[in-house]
Amino acid sequence: MSSRNDNVVVRSLAQIGACGLFLLTILAAIPRSFRHGRETVRQIWFVGAMSLTIVMTCGLFVGMVLGLQLYDVLSIFGGTSATGTVVAIAIYRELGPVVTALLFAGRAGTSVTAEIGLMRATDQLDAMEMMAVDPIAYVAAPRFLAGVVALPLLGLVFCAMGVFGGHLVGVTWLGIDNGTFWSNMTATVDIHKDIVNGVLLKSFAFGIVVSLIAVFQGYTTPPTSEGVAYATTRTVVASSIAILALDFVLTSFLI
């Protein structure tokens, strides 16, 4: 791989290349990892269900803040009845998938990196190899799959909480008519464009990217405590950049 005196660009390129190859390795191992279905289920629990609290709380607050801001701006034009619509569209298309992915990288991605990094450092991965268990199929692939499955689900939960938060502020506190709030939303929000292409597709893409980065960083951690610390940091930094850059690319294709 890259040596110490290469410059940043070369090092980053080498990392991206190695990451891409690692993705191929994982994909090749996925059929074998189905034997470890239980492990995948367990990982969905750890990366998905355990992230619910943070995702739900953040979704609620994001929806509430959006509701407040939009009500404030839209009241200038006398268009507060559109609050629900704009909250829903903003959350479905952008904030839902992006914020959930960022939270996921911070909450689940780092723990996956640290966990695999420590397994590497304490020879657990070698021990599995010696027990004729492929660590890619047993450790890497289930965590990767779990992330890819969990992130869209978390994104959906985030969106539902966001709409609920928007409703709470807009209807319950600021007094927009309940029927208006919902009917305007249902008239405008499109299941294909906003939910399938918005929440689901984006979250799925982010799930692949964040899980890959987290697993890759853990798997290639230098077996030291410093190495693990750096690897978790890199997971957050690389995931955040990748999420936002990919979001731009996806949006420009989808819009």
Binding site: A49, L153, L156, C159, V189, I191, I195
Partner: peptide, 23 residues
């Protein structure tokens, strides 16, 4: 627990699809 989580995710999808869009 994982099953509950997945069901919750799909419930959210059903909610978003039926309550906030015109199917």
């Amino acid at each position: 627990g994982t099953g509950l989580f997945i069901v919750l995710g799909f419930a959210a999808l059903a909610y978003l699809a039926t309550q906030t869009t015109s199917v």
